[in-house]
Amino acid sequence: MNAISAALDGLGKAMMSYVEEMGRILLLFLSVMAWMFRPPLKARNIFKQMEFVGVKSIFVVVLTGTFTGMVMALQGYHGFRMFGAEALVGSTVALGMTRELGPVLTALMVTARAGSAMAAELGTMRVTEQIDALSVMAANPVKHLIVPRVLAGVFMVPLLTVVSDFCGILGGYFVGVHLLDINSGIFIKNITKLVDLGDIYNGLVKAACFGLILSLIGCYKGFNARGGAEGVGRATTEAVVLAAITILISDYFLTAIMF
């Protein structure tokens, strides 16, 4: 009996701490929203973060996007050939990339590259008292550190998603038309016929949400890091795991609501 009640107790506590954590992240989000509209914002800080999150992620995003598109084309081809519907490969790749894989893969890559770096950087600043130093100098840490990162996430992830979508479709085109001999005209026509503007734009809305999630969680974990180098390491790991999970879960609900 005791063991059962202890287990239940533990489960309840774990639930509560998860809910509390979500609540704190939401509060952080509200405070980021609040500070976002309070001038002056340092454009230079924002651009630096945008460069870090966006420009420096282009290479990985191009790579993952291209190969994902290529693999989708290859797999789709083998499936569709059974029905003699090879022409649908193009639209499958395009729909898959714009609706789902573009935003999600981009967000996961950026989480791994930039979300983790945010957690590590802010975590280091926390344990070396640099964040306290900001407060002491009457400079709000949320405004100085988190707002630029969140803005960079929200704006750069959709842009990277556009690049990823495009590269994925190009990769699919290369495999489908040049390697598998699908007629290029039909390939493109099926894309333009079956893909809607809404598919692209909803994908981008998703991407913006993911950008918000990964930057917010990265910052939150770093901002609340405790306990030296080990604490920073833990914060980084937790940030990546929590952000990735949250992105995938929210993807489901965003998809259910939007499409």
């Binding site: 966006g54 420009v55 556009v162 690049v163």
Partner: peptide, 18 residues
């Protein structure tokens, strides 16, 4: 090249593709 220029270029390219 300054971050501003890099970001600006990236945004421009992204918007053109979009």
């Amino acid at each position: 090249i300054s971050s501003e220029a890099k970001v600006g270029l990236f945004v421009l390219v992204g918007l053109i593709i979009l």
